[in-house]
Nucleic acid binder design. Structure first.
Length: 1124
RNA sequence: UCUGAGGUGGCGCAAUUGGUUAGCGCAUUUGCCUGAUACGCAGAAGGUUGUUGGUUCGAGUCCAACUCUCGGAACCA
């Protein structure tokens, strides 16, 4: 059976062929089944959401995942990989809203929740086919047959079970807090969502400095110079829409304030304004700024505490109680106030700021919540009633209410300044609309209570790169906030909590469902009137209890989603009705639950779960640090006090070739399918892994990809083709049972095998250490530099030989082995090409391998066991020797260049100074290689007994520097000044006593490097410790041989051009030329041997044939014909 | 503002962890080699290693300040 030979390399074609093979032979399935169940490598697949199309960055992330799974499979471990789909959440809901042309308010009105959720369920898998397609085409091995899907009842039940576990540990509570809220999406956002990339944006907003009129009282008296003075406190805001909801002003207790007499801009009325002393210059005295007519003495914030002022914009709304009182419109103190911005006095609206609420509550203040959850003013806010505070509806005619408020303030003489101001403001990650901070009643997980433990356990996780784990993730854990679980949406896992309503009529008003007023303010802790359901069985029992107690006829819904679950009424121990909290849970909890829920743990697969927890390895993009990486960790720590994963690789961004972020709007996004189609999956994967480390951002450049394809894969392909070509000619077959012992093979074979084993060691270690870039670069350099351009290049003649003897056999076996092992090493990153070559190499002997039960019995490389390093075959001496050979050759070629002697012209000898016997021996070992590589007849060693060479000694700074310290400079000078006698003495004894300033330093040979840099009378080339001279005397005989070689070259070119078979015998007719006399007389046999010529005739004149020029001026004709 | 990574010929990356001539590939260019090769080899050209100080016998590497790029956190007045 022959090895397949190929015309050219077509990677995409190979992809298709191999995909077919994998599928038909169920290779992926076998790669799992054939590995023992008790030696697992656990991988978790982070679930993508199939309602968006996959991008090129997914190829990156999935290559990382795939390669380590494949590596560990080849190490013999069982690596199960369950695919998963993230199916809930806002992105899907918003997509559906858009498609149906509805908004959140329409749900339950224009469309039933039931129908809406059905739509979501269908939409969420919209691009599943594309994902599946990408998975297949890029060679990502993951079990797509039985994926976990977060909307399935089993999954939901496991999530409920987890929540219950956390609930039972007292880590859940309900509270009313100021939270980021997206009116456009109609839901609160977690801090994690707020930290999604691109959420904070620079926006230009209208800002206003409002002036609050101080009421004269005993306390404020000192601020007034006379009865009629109009004293006002200035406060800056970037959100003028919160001004009507102002209930306090906050001053810094120790900040110095001052009163400025001026005229109100816009109305020109005289007024006295209080601002922080440090900020006077910011608002007064400049061009177009109010003049400073007079200023008071300074006073500290503490002195104005409790000073009352008139409500800035009064629309008669009642003040809400914050469980501390309903006081309002006075100055309070807060430590958070600074003088870096604004006026040093902070406008405080407890409904719209976390600090505001805290400080308000502490001071017994009430709140005004004059904006509803859709982001518009209540109907009771006078001229602003019903207006949106930001353009949440994409209304083209939207007029900024902040401007109108500012105008109103100007007209009323209450504005000190109105200006546009650019600042950074968070936006909703889905709707791109500015968020607002809003009081929401939500369920929280007390993550902050567990942060120390999370931090501690995080230290046991191996992060790649480490800085992400320690820095980004570690810092996040240190400052961990409680996790807001509640989402007031429809398509998601319902919160399994039922409560007794505190007010009989409160069923609607108290819920977090969208209503037109702010939610109530009960922030009850879990009580015995609250129940968290942890399983369907438990729900069933509770339903039965409620049915009996309340006379109902309910059952567990078939679908655990809304709206069905909302209808279930349970009963409290004291017989009261309990209804479900209408919230959904944060989708991030869904995905963080996958280690358990993918197996429906603990209701099924207990053992399977235990075998598969925690994960050995996970990988996603850095953007998941506070997403999936966090939720996995948090849930595992809170529910099990364990880590969820031991090793985690967070890969960086994929940018365009210029380092810009890829985005659809910029049009620089690379489409994954066409890239895979054009370059093949392996080249893409290889390029991504080898170009830069996965955690660095990748500048994705198609030119680089093409280079990988051409250079790495092309070279390897050619190496294989070379092997196949000659193996087929000789009928060589690898025989695993009777391999030649490596010790008996020629020097160069043992060399490449030594290098190969070094490579195995290096690559294996790199994979073990999650360093794919190191692994791939090592493989690349082995293939290109060592295997192809040295081993094969140097061994070519061995393959050409006519007879198949031991030497040729050794060459074939060695090359075969190198190709095979390289394939194995690269298989994790390049699964297609390696498979393809594996099959080409091993299919012919599969039968024998199976019969003999040898390593190549496997039908796929991905079922084989990775070759282990054989350290006894690593021969450092030999590697050093070959290094000499390469470097000496290089120097000789360099000398040829200088003396303008082309390589085909043989030269007589190389002169090589030797400094010691071991060096000479080393060079002797590779002498033939050097001579044939540089086309020289002999090496003449010059040792120093001749007194012919000049030695030089250089200090070894590394060893010497440490000991000499400050004397290093003097020492270096002394050493550089050594005479030939000094060097000879040093060479002989191996020691030297160096005297510096009377201090004696004992130096040994390792402190020096002795080199020759010169051979008097010769032109030399030097590289480090090597020096070479070349004898360029050309005798007639050498000229003749040179011409013979030129002739061989021309004839070979003709053979090649004419597409002769490599083994074809030929007949040559040459037109004579006087210059060729010597060559033909002495080298005719040589020429014939080289070009496989049977008949060589020389004629005086030739009509046919081709004109050839051998060297300058020597032109003749030659006719080359195949012998029939 | 804080924080992390980084800044090395035109481009993409190295540099044994502080050791003396800063490497490699791509691109440009001159030769050469080749019956596997779109490879390779020899040469040319291209660098004040972001800037400025400092530590050290010695700094691309360590320290400080500044600057730029890309991330991250926050500030919501």
């Amino acid at each position: 059976m022959k090895y397949n030979e190929y015309k050219n390399l077509n990677l995409p074609e190979i992809d298709k062929e191999i995909l077919k093979f994998w599928e038909e032979n169920k290779i992926f399935e076998k790669s799992i089944e054939q590995r023992p169940e008790d030696d697992t490598y656990v991988f978790y697949e982070g679930p993508p959401s199939a309602n968006g199309k996959p991008g090129i960055h997914h190829v990156m992330a999935r290559t990382v995942k795939d390669l380590f799974c494949r590596f560990h499979t080849m190490k013999g471990q069982r690596v199960e990989r369950k695919a998963g789909w993230d199916t809930h959440g806002l992105p899907i809901e918003l997509a559906v809203e858009k498609e149906l042309g509805i908004t959140k308010e329409d749900i339950g009105v224009k469309i039933s929740i039931d129908d809406y959720n059905k739509q979501c369920r269908e939409t969420v898998m919209r691009y599943k086919h594309m994902w599946d397609d990408l998975t297949v085409k890029m060679g990502y091995w993951v079990d797509m047959e039985e994926p976990y899907i977060t909307f399935e009842n089993n999954y939901i039940e496991s999530v409920w079970w987890l929540l219950r576990r956390i609930y039972d540990k007292g880590l859940m509570y309900k509270g009313l807090t100021i939270q980021p809220y997206s009116p456009a999406a109609g839901t609160g956002l977690s801090t994690a969502e707020l930290n999604m990339p691109g959420c904070y944006k620079d926006v230009k907003d209208t800002t206003a400095v409002a002036m609050f009129k101080v009421i004269k009282s005993e306390q404020s008296n000192f601020l007034f110079d006379d009865e009629n003075e109009d004293v006002r406190i200035a406060a800056w805001t970037t959100t003028p829409w919160t001004l009507p909801s102002n209930t306090a002003l906050t001053a810094g207790p120790k900040i110095n304030y001052i009163k400025i007499k001026t005229n109100t801009p816009y109305t020109e009325a005289p007024v006295s304004v209080i601002v922080a002393e440090d900020l006077v210059g910011k608002w007064f005295g400049g061009k177009k700024q109010p003049a400073i007519l007079e200023q008071s003495a300074t006073f500290v914030g503490k002195q104005i505490e409790g000073v009352r002022y008139e409500q800035l914009m009064d629309y008669g709304n009642p003040i809400e109680d914050l469980h501390g009182g309903t006081d309002a419109f006075k100055v309070i103190l807060g430590r958070f106030v600074t003088t870096s911005d604004g006026t040093g006095i902070v406008h405080t609206a407890p409904s719209f700021g976390a600090d505001d609420r805290m400080v308000g509550k502490e001071n017994g203040l009430g709140a005004l919540t004059l904006v509803d959850k859709q982001g518009k003013f209540l109907d009771t806010v006078g001229e602003f009633s019903g207006r949106y505070v930001k353009n949440y509806k994409d209304d083209p005619n939207y007029v900024d209410v902040n401007i109108d408020i500012s105008v109103r303030l100007k007209l009323d003489g209450k504005a000190l300044n109105v200006a546009k101001y650019e600042h950074n403001y968070p936006h909703c990650w889905r709707t791109d609309k500015p968020i607002l901070y809003y009081p929401l009643d939500s369920w929280f997980i007390s993550a902050s209570k567990m942060k120390e433990r999370m931090f501690e356990l995080n230290k046991t996780i191996n992060w790649k790169p480490a800085s992400t784990g320690e820095g980004r993730f570690g810092k996040w854990l240190e400052n961990l906030q409680d996790w807001n679980l509640s989402r007031t949406r429809y398509w998601g896992i319902p919160l399994p909590i039922w409560r007794v309503r505190s007010t009989p009529s409160g069923a609607e008003g108290n819920s977090t469902e969208n209503g037109s007023t702010a939610s109530g303010f009960d922030s009850a802790q879990p009580t015995n009137h609250t129940i968290c359901i942890g399983s369907i069985e438990e729900l069933q029992k509770e339903i039965e209890k409620a049915n009996a107690g309340l006379g109902l006829n309910q059952s567990v819904p078939e679908d655990l989603h809304r709206p069905y679950i909302d209808d279930i009424v349970l009963m409290s121990p004291d017989g009261l009705e309990m209804t479900r909290e209408l919230d959904l849970i944060d989708v991030w909890f869904d995905s963080g639950s996958m280690p358990y829920a993918q197996w429906h743990y603990p209701f099924e697969n207990k053992e399977k779960f235990e075998r598969n927890f925690p994960a050995d390895f996970i990988a996603e993009g850095v953007d998941q640090t506070r997403g999936w990486f966090y939720t996995l960790h948090a849930i595992a720590v809170m529910a099990f006090d364990k880590v969820a994963y031991k090793n985690v690789v967070s890969n960086g961004l994929v940018q365009d070739a210029k380092g810009q972020k890829m985005s659809k709007s910029k049009g620089n996004a690379v489409e994954p399918f066409s890239t895979l189609e054009k370059y093949g999956a392996d080249a893409t994967r290889w390029y991504m892994m080898s170009n830069s480390q996965p955690w660095d951002n990748l500048k994705f450049d198609l030119n680089g990809l093409a280079e990988t394809q051409r250079k790495f894969f092309g070279t390897l392909f050619n190496t294989y083709n070379f092997f196949a070509l000659y193996a087929n000619i000789d009928g060589f077959q690898q025989d695993e049972m009777n391999a030649m012992p490596v010790e008996g093979r020629p020097e160069i074979d043992r060399w490449i095998i030594s290098k190969l084993n070094s490579l195995v060691m290096e690559v294996t270690a790199a994979y073990e250490d999650y360093e794919p870039t190191k692994a791939s670069r090592a493989i690349e350099s082995f293939v290109a530099d060592e295997l192809s351009n040295w081993y094969v290049r140097q061994s070519r003649r061995r393959f050409w030989k006519t007879e198949l003897g031991a030497d040729k056999q050794a060459a074939f076996e060695t090359l075969y082995q190198c190709l095979m092992v390289v394939n194995q090493l690269m298989a994790p990153i390049a699964p297609f090409f390696s498979e393809w070559m594996y099959k080409n190499l091993s299919d012919p002997i599969r039968g024998a391998a199976i019969d003999n039960d040898t390593p190549l019995k496997h039908e796929s490389i991905h079922l084989t066991h990775l070759t282990k390093v054989q350290e006894e075959l690593i021969d450092k001496d030999l590697e050093q020797r070959m290094d000499y050979a390469q470097r000496i050759s290089s120097l000789v070629l360099s000398l040829r260049k200088k003396s303008k002697n082309r390589v085909r012209q043989p030269l007589q000898k190389i002169l090589l100074p030797v400094l010691n016997d071991s060096f000479k021996q080393q060079v002797e070992g590779v002498k033939d290689l050097i001579l044939s590589e540089v086309n020289v007849k002999e090496i003449e060693y010059i040792d120093d007994t001749s007194g012919f060479i000049k030695k030089k000694v250089k200090p070894n700074f590394k060893t010497l520097g440490r000991r000499m310290g400050k004397n290093m400079k003097a020492a270096a000078a002394a050493i550089n000044g050594f005479t030939q006698e000094d060097i000879a003495a040093l060479d002989k004894s191996g020691k030297y006593e160096l005297n510096i300033d009377g201090e004696i330093h004992e130096l040994t040979t390792e402190d020096f490097e002795i080199v020759t840099e010169d051979i008097p009378g010769w032109q030399v080339a030097t590289d480090g410790d090597l020096t070479v001279a070349l004898d360029v005397t050309i005798t007639d005989m050498l000229i003749a041989e040179g011409l013979a070689r030129e002739l061989v070259n021309r004839i070979q070119n003709i053979r090649k051009d004419r597409d002769f078979n490599i083994t074809d015998r030929i007949k040559v007719t040459l037109q004579n030329h006087p210059a060729l006399a010597g060559a033909l007389a002495n080298f005719k046999d040589y020429i014939c041997g080289e070009v496989l010529c049977d008949e060589f005739s020389i004629v005086d004149s030739l009509d046919g044939g081709e004109v050839i020029e051998l060297v300058d001026g020597v032109e003749t004709r030659v006719l080359v014909e195949v012998v029939a």
